[in-house]
């Protein structure tokens, strides 16, 4: 049920040395009679970019919303491991999940539009700073320890502003930035929470090719230099195929494939899903090639 039988085994065996960063087991989400996600299981390894792809309405964003606590899953176990602890996300509130080390971005950008870009990044370090400010008491007194913590937060924010090339615009309202800049800023904001796992919901949507390339670079940099796993929902197959270590394919709420880009690319179930339920296995070669090209899966 979880995996269609025709899924090709991953070329690179998926057996990370330690236990996976994220374990999703039998995740099911129902809205009334509608089953948006149906018994999906997968895992994400630390330091990997794991992509979730699938046609519109496949349930990708719903998986994200379950992971990040915006929905409470109907069934399933979601475990996030890190800092020597295991968090059972299905039982936690949204903000506690974020504290546990889960950061996310949104399909429609959700910055704080009337706060500056810089402030957006400082707000993201809320919990760290709250503790440092003694839940506001030390902050009001202006103690040295708080000043130091704030300086640290400023440095982290500056670091990310430099990374995304927005130092010049740091003090401008986030709402006034260009679309691509806002996308990058949202990722930087998520990184400022110093997460274990970064969930990106269609980060390349609406970007032009140059911005797309910048985004790829940023994601690869994050994976390279920061000890963080990335979970990625994306429609732009060229991005997905280039940077993902592992791809999970959903269709109509079910997982139909799971493996490396190379493996997933050839899986008939995946091709069928993207093509539609035309004639199943009888699809002729011509159409299949078209599909691959349309989906950006061609060589």
């Amino acid at each position: 049920m979880t995996t269609a039988p025709d899924t090709t085994e991953p070329a690179r065996p998926f057996s990370p040395p330690q236990r996976p960063l994220l374990d999703v087991e039998h995740l099911t989400m129902r809205f009334g009679g509608l089953v948006a996600v149906d018994d999906v299981s997968f895992a994400a390894a630390p330091g990997d970019i794991t992509a979730i792809i699938g046609p519109n309405g496949a349930g990708k964003t719903t998986v994200f919303n379950c992971l990040t606590g915006f929905y409470r899953p109907s069934v399933g176990r979601l475990a996030l491991r890190g800092n020597g602890r295991e968090y059972l996300l299905e039982r936690m509130e949204c903000h506690d999940i974020a504290r546990a080390g889960m950061a996310r971005t949104f399909q429609s950008i959700r910055l704080f539009p009337r706060m500056s870009a810089f402030e957006n990044l400082v707000v993201a370090q809320h919990n760290k700073l709250m503790r440092a400010s003694g839940y506001t008491v030390f902050g009001l007194l202006g103690t040295r320890s708080y000043a130091e913590a704030e300086a640290g937060a400023v440095e982290l924010a500056r670091y990310w502003l430099e990374k995304i090339g927005l130092v010049d615009r740091a003090d401008d309202d986030a709402g006034n930035l260009a679309y691509g800049q806002q996308r990058r800023l949202e990722i930087a904001r998520a990184m400022c929470t110093e997460p274990l796992l970064l969930c990106l919901d269609e980060p390349a949507a609406g970007l032009n090719p140059r911005e797309s390339a910048e985004l790829e670079e940023l994601l690869l940099f994050v994976r390279e230099r920061h000890d963080v796993g990335i979970l990625l929902i994306e429609h732009d197959m060229s991005v997905v195929m280039k940077i993902s270590d592992r791809i999970v394919v959903l269709d109509h709420g079910r997982k139909i494939a799971d493996g490396t880009p190379a493996a997933v690319r050839g899986a008939p179930a995946v091709i069928r899903a993207y093509l539609g339920e035309a004639d199943g296995a009888d699809t002729d070669t011509h159409t299949r090639a078209d599909t691959r090209r349309d989906a950006g899966m061609g060589a």
């Binding site: 903000h95 959700r110 402030e119 400082v122 919990n127 998520a190």
Partner: peptide, 18 residues
Amino acid sequence: RAWEALREDETASRSLGI
């Protein structure tokens, strides 16, 4: 800052652990 963030976007604030 968390107050202002909540005013601007409660959903995003929650996703940041506020």
